[in-house]
């Protein structure tokens, strides 16, 4: 267990190192250097002297190696510099917006997990009936719907036609309804598809039939012999969708003008606000990797077989 933890933490550090090198050089290779962007934001003319001034100010006049060392030293202290647009520290800017987005992410994730687990177990219990077929078809349909279509349709009907919910912004609980539905509908549908496969696999296992042959109570049978073996695969699926959910959230935030991280990042990206983009990337990578790591630890705790599977691929 400790070895695994240490290995994964080392892996995270190594990954961040690679990522930082990649981003550092990408910013320098791409057309439009940081100095230009700053000058454009300040509204000054792009003259020779000002560029040199900013270069010394940013420390960009030394060698690339020195620049990287200095830059990465600051990155380790979570000092991502100041935003070109607002001249405020990047970390503060990001942190002030993160709560709005996190609420959206957690709400939609929780709703879609609960709903999809219930629906997929329901479908598996009624296997071979029309209900199961319809659940399958609807989930395929919903999971291939693009988020913006769902979002636009919801806005069209609920906000414009029926005037039930506000069109955009945030504040009251009414504002949460449409974004959360938009995010969780396709997510829930794809969960249902994958979960149903997982449950059918578990039902096929001999130990489930053996448990039935033992005459175990319904509650014990379904919780210990059906749900417990599913949890491992469920969590893996959820973890793999957790990352892409953030992409979905960005689209949703732009649709509903949600004042969260997503719309801020899109804004920063279009304005070429390099410190914000870099800070966001590194923090996001660290955050997601830590989440994956925690899920892996949890899986190990739940499923004792996992420790055995480690050495499967060998040289």
């Amino acid at each position: 267990m400790w070895r695994f933890t240490l290995k994964r933490l080392l892996n995270i550090i190594l990954t961040l190192f690679f990522l930082s090198i990649f981003i550092f050089f990408l910013v320098r290779v791409t057309p439009g250097t940081p100095e230009m962007v700053i000058l454009l934001n300040r509204g000054g003319e792009i003259g020779g002297e000002e560029v040199v001034d900013i270069k010394t100010e940013l420390g960009h006049d030394t060698s690339l190696y020195n620049q990287y060392v200095n830059w990465s030293k600051r990155m380790i202290r979570f000092d991502f510099g100041v935003s070109y647009q607002s001249n405020l520290p990047v970390l503060d800017e990001l942190l002030s917006r993160v709560s709005d987005t996190l609420i959206l992410v957690i709400l939609s994730l929780a709703i879609s997990i609960i709903l999809s687990v219930i629906i997929s177990f329901y479908a598996c219990i009624y296997k071979g009936t029309m209900r199961e077929k319809w659940i399958g078809n609807i989930s395929i349909f919903l999971s291939s719907l693009p988020n913006y279509l769902i979002g636009l349709l919801l806005v069209l009907f609920f906000s414009i036609h029926w005037k039930v919910t506000p069109v955009y912004g945030d504040g009251t609980w009414l504002h949460y309804i449409l974004p959360v539905i938009t995010a969780s509908l396709p997510l829930c549908a794809s969960f249902v598809q994958l979960f149903r496969q997982i449950i059918t696999e578990v039902i096929k296992n001999l130990y489930f039939e053996a448990a039935r042959a033992m005459g175990l109570k319904k509650r014990v049978l379904y919780t210990k012999f059906l749900f417990l073996p599913c949890i491992h695969s469920f969590l893996t699926v959820i973890a793999s969708h957790f990352g892409s959910l953030w992409g979905t959230i960005i689209v949703i935030e732009t649709i509903y003008a949600w004042p969260g991280l997503g719309s801020y990042i899109i804004h920063a990206v279009t304005a070429r606000d390099y410190p914000v983009v870099i800070g966001f990337t590194l923090i996001m990578a660290l955050f997601l990797m830590l989440i994956y790591f925690l899920i892996d630890l949890l899986l190990r705790y739940i499923d004792p077989r996992q420790t055995q599977k480690d050495g499967q691929i060998k040289w």
Binding site: P31, T270, F280, T281, A285
Partner: peptide, 30 residues
């Protein structure tokens, strides 16, 4: 070689691909 490439793969897959695409499109300009 495998260790190196898997490390690179890990660093790319640590961020979801859509976010990578957004960041990249942002850094290179739309």
């Amino acid at each position: 070689v495998d260790l190196l490439t898997t490390a690179i793969m890990d660093s790319f897959s640590s961020i979801p691909s859509f976010l990578v695409a957004i960041i990249f499109a942002g850094l290179l300009g739309p």
